[in-house]
Nucleic acid binder design. Structure first.
Length: 143
DNA sequence: TAGGCCATCTGGTCCT
DNA sequence: AGGACCAGATGGCCTA
């Protein structure tokens, strides 16, 4: 884990204002701030996990250096556009060209998006894509 | 050493 | 009231 800012602590900046108030209020505010910081840390970690999943799915220039968050989003956008184009073009082709389409998807393997498949939505929430499924190179894919 | 990227803290806003 | 989300600020690490 990275070191924290030296000038800031989990106690929060509201301490100075609350110093003059009752110790109970100060304690409560401190506890709330620490809890909020912990939640924010956890939230950002979740976001980073999602970015890691996206990096596994998106094409990379090289394996030596991982894409930054910005680059990952840009690459994902380009990748989706490219796949969309492939599908659009495929619709214009008839059966004799089916092999061509299979070739386009040759590099798309289930293990590449395993992290997305295992995603559990929060309880009580339904997602449209949760019942989505399709056939890809003989693989039945459920998402 | 400057610049890019990132983690963390923080306060504000919105939602449940 | 409390949690989720967001954006700004700040400081650390790394690389050219």
């Amino acid at each position: 884990m990275k070191s924290r800012r030296s000038s800031c602590t989990d106690s929060g900046s509201e301490s100075s204002e609350l110093d003059s108030k009752s110790p109970e209020k100060y304690e409560t505010a401190t506890r709330r701030r620490m809890a909020a910081n912990a939640r924010e840390r956890k939230r950002m970690q979740g976001l980073n996990t999602a970015f890691d999943c996206l990096r596994k799915v998106v094409p990379q220039w090289g394996q030596d250096k991982k894409l930054s968050k910005y680059e990952t989003l840009q690459m994902a956008l380009s990748y989706i556009m490219a796949l969309n184009r492939i599908l659009t073009d495929a619709r214009r082709h008839t059966a004799p060209h089916r092999q061509w389409l299979d070739l386009q998807f040759d590099s798309v393997q289930p293990e590449n998006y395993a992290c997305l498949m295992s995603y559990d939505p929060p309880a009580g929430q339904d997602y449209i894509h949760s019942s989505f499924s399709y056939q890809l190179n003989g693989h039945q894919v459920h998402a």
